[in-house]
Design a protein around this nucleic acid. Sequence first.
DNA 1: CGTTGAGGTAAGGGTAATCTATTTAA
DNA 2: ATTAAATAGATTACCCTTACCTCAAC
Length: 776
Amino acid sequence: MFLGKSQVLEQGLSMSTVEEESDTVTVETVNSVTLTQDTEGNLILHCPQNEADEVDSEDSSEPPHKRLCLSEDDQSLDDSTPCISVVAVPISENDQSFEVTMTATAEVAEDEINEGTVTQIQILQNEQLDEISPMGNEEVSAVSQAWFTTKEDKDSLTNKGHKWKQGMWSKEEIDILMSNIERYLKARGIKDATEIIFEMSKDERKDFYRTIAWGLNRPLFAVYRRVLRMYDDRNHVGKYTPEEIEKLKELRVKHGNDWATIGAALGRSASSVKDRCRLMKDTCNTGKWTEKEEKRLAEVVHELTSTEPGDIVTQGVSWAAVAERVGTRSEKQCRSKWLNYLNWKQSGGTEWTKEDEINLILRIAELEVSDENDINWDLLAEGWSSVRSPQWLRSKWWTIKRQIANHKDVSFPVLIKGLKQLHENQKNNPGHQLAENKCGSGLANSNSSSGVQHVQIRVARLEESTGSAPSPMAALQIPVQITHVSSTDSPAATVDSETITLNSGTLQTFEILPSFHLQPTGTPGTYLLQTSSSQGLPLTLTTSPTMTLTAAAAPASPEQIIVHALSPEHLLNTSDNVTVQCHTPSVIIRTVAAEDISSSVTQTELTVDADIQSADLTDPPDTLGTNTFPHDIHQSKLSDEEQSAYNEDDASKFRELMDGVMVRTEEEIADASLKQNEDSHSGLPSTYVTEDLGSPTIEEQVDQPTIDDETVLIVPSSHGFIQATDDMDNESVLPLTTLTDPILQHHGDGSHIIGSSLGSPDSEDSKDVEDLVSCP
DNA sequence: CGTTGAGGTAAGGGTAATCTATTTAA
DNA sequence: ATTAAATAGATTACCCTTACCTCAAC
């Protein structure tokens, strides 16, 4: 993730095939590292003590961080070879946990078949990680353990070559933070993080921030800030009412800049009232700028920045000072006007065109960044006359992004890939206009059934409950995320303008999400593999006789593997059900997929799936969803009650799963599906979860013409089986996993418990699962 | 008594979502 | 000509960093 360049240090060895052990199944063997899976679904990494020691505590001149690079074959250094790197770093000084970060670092040609390859592992060592502290309690990042109060601290770290993340927190970071907090709470038996944050003395909460900063490449102070905001219930109160504004004005007169006092009086955070006051100057105009005002603004900007009219000025402007001189507008208004219009106008900018838009996507794709935050907008905007400012370009990007209805729920590389496909498609089918003229109000209108944009990247994702229940260690900890780019219309119409097609097939993207943890099991050198929510593992699809699939890591997507179904017509031509079984290109996934059980399970699944299918047949088409794409994913939705009811059975479900036995009874499934029908009018599904841990199985129901190519994806879930309406026409296919900002979740449920079980504030549902945690 | 760690505060640059007015398409 | 949809522009709630301050323990 945020690790520097790595270097191959050690040997790559072929991995053994799957083998059986008494109670565990050996998934892969690497050198002497073995991944096994016990009957309860826990993944266990066995690492002989001597080797564990090597990883864990090198001599002090060596960084403690190893990077495992799992690659597909011998050409691991070849760029065209998919390579999953795994970074293992100790999580904290107290437990012997490791955090493992996985990234795919190379790609495979898109049409290159990627099946059954021998996987290799290499151990790479990171060259430039942090020094080991005297006690050997080495840290993930010196940055994350530094408070950064002074410029000297910063310079010192910079001089040592450290880099750290700034700006908005990504989902992944928030996720790590949340899971760290949960782990901290659990370890200390504390129910509510607010106890620590707001009630404990500094001394009592000693090490809290430092501990929860593990795995985050952010200054400790930034972590601290984030956590405070997150748990402050006077934050995120929402829009100010006119009454509040009045009161605020009064309080301002009375208390000046004592934001804390003003905030307390209003029941809002200090920074909130401070920010609100910034927006209101009594001398401020609103609405359209007059020519005089614009002229004044330009003069002031040029004057204060010592620039000439016509110069491009996008940085180094003190907007407070500008606003002061302009007189009739606030600093925000001045900034916005200047960066989004005036400067461009004055420097002879040109209009933004369709070509510019495509260009932007292509240029962003070329950057091959894995994280949107890594885009250098200044650079991108340079010399681009239709770009009004880097800031404006970024907001333009946002409107483009919204062409993908669920853009928030897919990773950046997947999004880029999808947008590229979309625009290529538009280019090739100019008659079919799609999102290009329908962006803009995108999300807001996306639920209207008529012709707004229908494009979305479909995600089926398995989630553990990170939630409210005090167990971040629920048994099922290996979520599998499957992102599936598709669109709304009939699957038969593979060249439909609203279908993202690739060689007449539909693109499927399987995402690898970045990190999981190794938790010590108690046996020396043996760790439990544990992911936090929204983190998945890589998958590829094996080919089936009737279906051609290729797997490729996306060019710009170091964290994904993209699988294309190239020949849907094959599917249509076959009268048999086609089972596409996901397995893994890497060590770990195999564990998830547990291919050795899949063959025996397949028949069971087929039966069960057929039952779902028949249950669904009773659905009115519009509630069922007009699917879509030959290998569409059938999802189901349950009400919260149903969900929790179902979850009561999680424990046995998981055990059964890991034994290769289908979890749900057919009745349960049929029941779920039926209930979903009743429920489906309510619109947005609360959660999408698919089920079956063993092998996420995509089954084509090509022989059921009454239903448009329903597909059942079964992946494991700690949530129960939730069926969602899948009507893409009305955009109800929503994110399976809403990786909600914990800040909002926190406020949403009114308690101080954060994290959630995705859409369902029901905090009960991981309790049952907790028992399953196997930590010998 | 100076230093240091662990915060705390205010200021200000910034982003993203949402409103609103205007333009364009149907 | 009328209306609805799309877009651009404006606004606002919230985010994040920086610089400087405080205070208690060593």
